[in-house]
Amino acid sequence: MWIYERKLQYPVKIKKPDPKYAKIIISQLGGPDGETGAANRYLNQRYSMPYKEVAGILTDVGTEELAHMEMIGAILSQLTRDLSPEEIKKSGFDAYFVDHTAGVYPASAAGVPFDAKYIGVKGDVIADLNEDLAAEQKARVTYDNLLRLIDDPDVCAPLKFLRERELVHYQRFGDGLRIAQDNMDFRNFYGYNPAFDRKKPR
C-alpha cells in the first residue's frame, strides 16, 4: 500500500499564473513521456521482475514518480489559478478550458488524453529494463524542451529538479540492468527470459 506525505518533493510556488506554460507542461503529466506513464510503467513491471533488488528499484522509482505527478499537478494548478475569460482567450487556453475548466486532466501538450499505449510491460527482464532506460531519457529530453520555452524562474526551478531526477533514475535502472545480467546466462542474455522460463531464479 501507499500512504500520503503532506509535502511536495520539491517546492512549487508560482507567483505569476500563466496558462500558456500550463498548455505545454501538461505533457509531463499525461503525455507520451510524462510522469503518469512513468509511475504506471514501473509499478506494473514489478510483478514480473524476478530479481528482488531490481523489483525494489522499480517500486521505489515508481513511487517517486507518483510524487512527480503531484509536482506537475501543483505547477499546472498554480499556473491556471484566478484567470479571467480574457486571459483564457488570449493565451489560447480556451480549447482546454472548455472541456476541463481549470481542472488538472492528464493529456499531452497536443491535447491527446493519457493512454496506456505510452507504456510497455513486456514481462521480459531485458526488454522492460531497456524500456525504462529509454523512458528516462525521453522524459529528460521533454524537460529540456520545456526549459527552452519557459523563462519564469518560479516555473523553471521545479522543472530543473525533475529533469535531474530523470538522470538519476537512468543511473539506477542501469544498476538494475547490471544486476539482471549478472544473474543471467552471460553467454546469452537473450536465450531465455528469467521472468517466465524459470520458476525460481537463484
Binding site: Q9, P11, G56, D60, V168, D175
Partner: peptide, 16 residues
C-alpha cells in the same frame, strides 16, 4: 525536505 531527499536518494542507490 532536504533530509528526506538524501534518504530517498540513498535508498534508490542501496537497492542496487
Amino acid at each position: 525536505r532536504a533530509y528526506s531527499f538524501a534518504v530517498y536518494e540513498a535508498a534508490l542507490y542501496l537497492d542496487g
